[in-house]
Design a binder for these strands. Structure first.
Lengths: 207, 207
DNA sequence: AATCAATTTAAACAAACGTTTAATTTAAAC
DNA sequence: GTTTAAATTAAACGTTTGTTTAAATTGATT
């Protein structure tokens, strides 16, 4: 991918914010231009069109979604500890990029624009491989049970997070989380722990 | 709520389809009118505006989301069986209404329209109460562990489902589900079983 | 057959949309 | 200082948007 200049990066940043908050169709190029303090024509000038701006945004951000796990496999950790660390990495990563996930998930669901999700799927497969490696190690050491459908674990990890995030007003009220920081803190402490516990429980559960 | 006539119900049905497939902002009143074989003006005539049509749709459909659980508590089942049955009810219910969940979740996330989600939240609280009752029974009988955050279990149940549904192209490929029916069948058999197993594992997991 | 309200229609409305144009400004190269 | 290409602008473009209008049609009630 070509590098973007400061002005283009600013446009991408504003577009990411507005697309995630109001949807692609709910955001006009004039909204973006206003928030980014640029002329409307600059969007076509730099990106060609509104739709190509979305495409550039997705391609530019997808690489941020791959987990960085070099340390995880180098360190001398038990499979349980590795699961804990992997899930924490997972959640921190998607929490940092939750705007892009909001945008991408809506685009996947609606299929209005034909965007190439190949690299997105490759990232998911890459992350799934890492999980599989840890689970196999745990099974070989006799710590985890045998019949585990590894591909269904990421949906539980990410789904729990996204559903919690998606229903922020509801769970914010339930858990008395008044500010955005309260909510974010709760995710990075309690919710991560809940997901770690859930997956570890599943990995040792005998039917 | 006032009852709707056949024509109004047809409009609601088409709106539900198109709003879920292309989003509220991605659907024009002309799209709806065309698919419903009516004149554009009929939408304003019957519902006042496009936005009020969305509101009417949400209010009209929310009652479908409440679980029907009379039988569940009458029957003589173990807490484990009750959990299994409740989760199956949960998933079958949201799977039947997945279009409305798609619409509502997008509306909650974007906050562009100010819709009253009180009855939606009440349904969620009602469903949470039922889960709580079962878990308490299991704890009293010494079958489930003590320290369970019940409010975090529905996000795992529903989140797993929604994330699987949302990434249909990816998981369809992973599990080799070629048709819509294949996908639906997989949900109602394997995915439900995965979620049941996950929650039961969590309920008996000792830290 | 006449009346009347409810329904349905085609047409028009202003506003907002994404995009393009042509002119102007900017800033670096010569 | 002149040249040149890139950046930026205001204005206009043709569509599409949601909504309204006013006339036409329908179908039951008198």
């Amino acid at each position: 991918m070509t590098e973007f200049n400061d002005k283009q990066n600013e446009i991408l940043l504003v577009a990411e914010k507005l697309f995630s908050e109001h949807g692609f169709d709910g955001t006009s190029v004039r909204d973006i231009a206003k928030e980014a303090n640029i002329n409307i024509a600059m969007i076509s000038y730099y990106f060609g069109s509104k739709e190509k701006l979305l495409e550039a945004l997705i391609i530019n951000r997808i690489s941020d979604l791959r987990l960085e796990m070099e340390n995880l496999f180098k360190e001398n950790l038990t499979p349980f500890e590795k699961i804990d660390r992997l899930i924490e990495l997972y959640i921190r990563r998607i929490n940092k990029n939750c705007r892009m996930y909001q945008i991408i998930h809506f685009e996947i669901a609606t299929k209005k624009r034909d965007i190439n999700y190949q690299s997105f799927n490759e990232v998911k497969k890459y992350n799934l491989q890492a999980l599989m490696k840890i689970i196999e190690e745990g099974q070989e050491k006799g710590l985890f049970v045998k019949n585990i459908d590894v591909a269904l674990i990421p949906p539980t990890i990410m789904g729990t997070y996204f559903h919690f995030q998606m229903n922020k007003p509801f769970y914010g009220e339930i858990f008395n989380l008044k500010t955005e920081e309260d909510f974010d803190t709760y995710i990075l402490t309690h919710l991560i722990k809940h997901i770690q516990k859930t997956i570890k429980a599943l990995l040792v559960y005998e039917n």
